[in-house]
Design a protein around this nucleic acid. Sequence first.
DNA 1: TCTCCACAGGAAACAACGGTCT
DNA 2: AGACCGTTGTTTCCTGTGGAGA
Length: 398
Amino acid sequence: MSDSTSFFGDPDPIFANKDLLRVQHLPDKDRIIGRDEELTQLANAIKDAAHGRTPNNVLVYGKTGTGKSLCTKYITNDLVSSAEENDVSVGVAYVDCFQDSTETQTVRSIADSLNDPDETDVKIPMSGLSTSDYYRRLWNILEDRYDVGLVILDEIDKLDSDDVLMQLSRAAESGKIEDSTLGIIGISNKIRYKETLNERVRSSLSERNLVFAPYDAKQLGEILNSRIDAFREGVVEEAVIPKIAALAAREHGDARKAIDILRYAGESAYERGHETVRETHVDEAHEREERNRLSELISKLPSHSKHLLNALALQAQQHDDDDPEIPTEDVYSLYEIMCEQEGTDPLKNRRVRDLLSELEFLSVIRQQHKGRGRGRGAHTVNQLVDEPELVIKACKSA
DNA sequence: TCTCCACAGGAAACAACGGTCT
DNA sequence: AGACCGTTGTTTCCTGTGGAGA
């Protein structure tokens, strides 16, 4: 599986084990860097679970790439094994709430990851059940298999209602489960997330709060160094890692992005046939990391959103101004023409307004509301965030 | 300072879909 | 087989409002 040999079977001159630079890669404990205190706090908060008692519910905050999910996964793994020594069975369910954002999807996902059909004789179908059915099955599974259930809700702020949180936090007191107990670890990158919750849920969910600060340059450097085994020995020049670390610390403190840049730098060196990864490759890699984000984002957009974006970009390009403001009605009429040419039915105005505000949410465009005076109504103008040429190119290639 | 209306955007309803349950 | 479920994408309906011009 590793990319250590090239297409032609020759050994890769740059990478020894590229997997170490994949985001999904879960490092060993000695590779988790600069998070000792957070790990300890987290462990303290949930340690009761190891003895079969109800753990504290925890809210973990911190920007992206600060190691929240990583540490949570690590510590819960650890908990499961130390609980085993006490003859306590702990089940951990990890849910990415960005993917499973509705109440039903979340319960389903939790039930599914705690379940073992052979053991419980319960099936968790992908769909078709009512929400309450999924809950019923989840409670059964919990009672059947575990003393303690730990639910990790990653990107908890993406949840579209508090209902799951309500149900989960009240499961024991409302008698839904009797022999088992349940703990929740919520992970969010919005520091104000707690304020959006209703009072009941808030108090029970945030018994403990933890904040992960962005990594500083020193820690980023250590993190990158710990992945140096991804490269062949001596391939990465000395200045490279400090440079990436400084860059990433200045901009965001995001370890994930820093690792991406390191990988891109390696790829740059490889493509140019250089034998070592140099500082110049870092600059290229940095640019590449940014450009990739845009085209990746656009390629994942539904086709009508792409058409709209394309229409907006074309109009921005024709405009004399540098950063022109295009009214929604203009975008819409060009979009209609483009759909006609393609032979697809255009969406109605109302829907288009929704799609445009989604694009704004994704920071691909900027919107501004303006009034037009007596008898002329109010309207919205749209601006591109990136260069029109870049956007058009990305729309075409996608 | 006040007026006025086209558009923004919330709410609800609908349709299609892919699934389960009895 | 037919009732039922949740999700997604869309349309229809409707109210609230920004701000240029009177």
